[in-house]
Design a binder for these strands. Structure first.
Lengths: 140, 140
DNA sequence: GTTTAACAACGAAAACTTTCGGTTTCGCGG
DNA sequence: CCGCGAAACCGAAAGTTTTCGTTGTTAAAC
């Protein structure tokens, strides 16, 4: 924690890229997977890439520390290196800064501006109530 | 007139890039600005780019339809083509899809996971209440 | 032990984003 | 008019991200 402090502001979206995030989502859902499995899930949708492309992505992500793998035997078994929630927090925090100047309320406004069901709203409010209680507990 | 170049036709979820969003934010705050003005705001911060770079970005954004400009006289005057709120909704919606699989509650969870004051929480809940009322009014 | 098919590593091309240098055009003061 | 500095355009380099072809490697089948 010494020299990077100054030019660290350049660290904007050095998070996962688009393709990387897609793969992470598969890994989060499968817990653990081979390249073949990941590739099959990806190409179930609209993705039209070769196995090698997926493999290369996993290599890159391993380099970046986004995934870990078990390579004692073949097919190597991959795993997300970062929990889903943590990455999501990072992504939201990033967007909050980049597009909203940190104004949380504006983000919520944008989130609820589109059509959102009352069911979802109630769900969210329930969640916020729980959150508030937690805050109160810690405050005491 | 709007000769949509083929570059953008295949749009997946390719919103504004990072540099583009930075410029849009300046434009939203200034309403209207010359390249010089935009560039000055940008380089007030940590950005270290030349005037020409900013100019080029504006050209690109004009091509993409992200900005409009008045070029009857010489310093051309630029304006964001899309309102701030609309773009923010698009960005949030995009993140919601890409990182959360559409689970709004999860996004709110991520948003409130970091330390957030009860004040902010209350603010957000107030927002949600208003939204709910609107939904009820427009209920079909 | 040899063959075979899947797996992995590697490099490099393609696509996209950001940056900047060289040059032309414009508006204006002299 | 003339020249000068600011503004604009162009093309291409530099930097990322994504894709894929080629080549080696391994496990397992024969």
């Amino acid at each position: 924690m010494s020299e990077m402090s100054k030019s660290q502001t350049k660290n904007k979206s050095t998070g996962p890229t688009n393709a990387e995030l897609e793969i992470l989502r598969v890994l989060w859902s499968l817990e653990t997977a081979t390249v073949r499995q990941i590739h099959e899930v990806l190409t179930d949708g609209e993705k039209q890439t070769t196995f090698n492309t997926t493999l290369k992505m996993l290599n890159i992500m391993l380099d970046k520390g986004l995934v870990t793998r078990e390579d004692v035997r073949r097919p190597h078994i991959y795993q997300a290196a970062i929990p889903e929630e943590q990455m999501q927090q990072q992504l939201v925090s990033d967007l909050l800064k980049r597009a909203f100047g940190g104004a949380t309320r504006k983000l919520v406004a944008a989130l609820t501006a589109s059509d959102i069901s009352n069911e979802e709203l109630a769900d969210i409010k329930q969640f916020l109530n729980d959150q508030e209680e937690k805050n109160d507990e810690h405050a005491n």
